[in-house]
């Protein structure tokens, strides 16, 4: 129960989406970049190309591929957890 996230209720009329602050952007890239395919057509083509460009230009940086089972729903918790634990950055192939 202690690991459950706190839930708060929206006090507004709910016309605006919930806003979140972006994580601070690091100045250099190191470690592992997660490449997330959300199962949209040709996402793999884009990520393949990106992967080779990263290998070429950022030789010390590793990449790792991830995949959402369906484009229609948010990433399942295990995919999010895996990315959180295994990678330092994530690039998502968002739209076709």
């Amino acid at each position: 129960m202690t690991t459950e996230n706190l839930v708060i209720l929206d006090p507004t009329d709910e016309r605006e989406p919930v806003r979140r602050e972006l994580t601070q952007r690091p100045e250099t890239i190191s470690g592992t970049i997660a490449l997330l395919d959300i199962s949209k057509p040709r996402g793999d083509v884009f990520l393949n190309r990106l992967e080779s460009l990263i290998a070429e230009r950022l030789p010390g940086v590793a990449t790792k591929r991830y995949m959402k089972p369906t484009v229609a729903r948010p990433a399942p918790e295990d995919v999010k957890q895996a990315i959180r634990q295994e990678a330092d950055f994530v690039i998502e192939a968002l739209a076709d």
Partner: peptide
């Protein structure tokens, strides 16, 4: 009401500021 989940690493007081729902002073979650 819409439920807003607060992440483990999120500061709930800051999140509420970010939502623009305060008058500039802290609010009770």
């Amino acid at each position: 009401a819409r439920r807003i989940e607060v992440g483990q690493n999120e500061d709930v007081y800051e999140l509420l500021y970010e939502q623009g729902v305060t008058d500039g002073l802290p609010v009770m979650p």
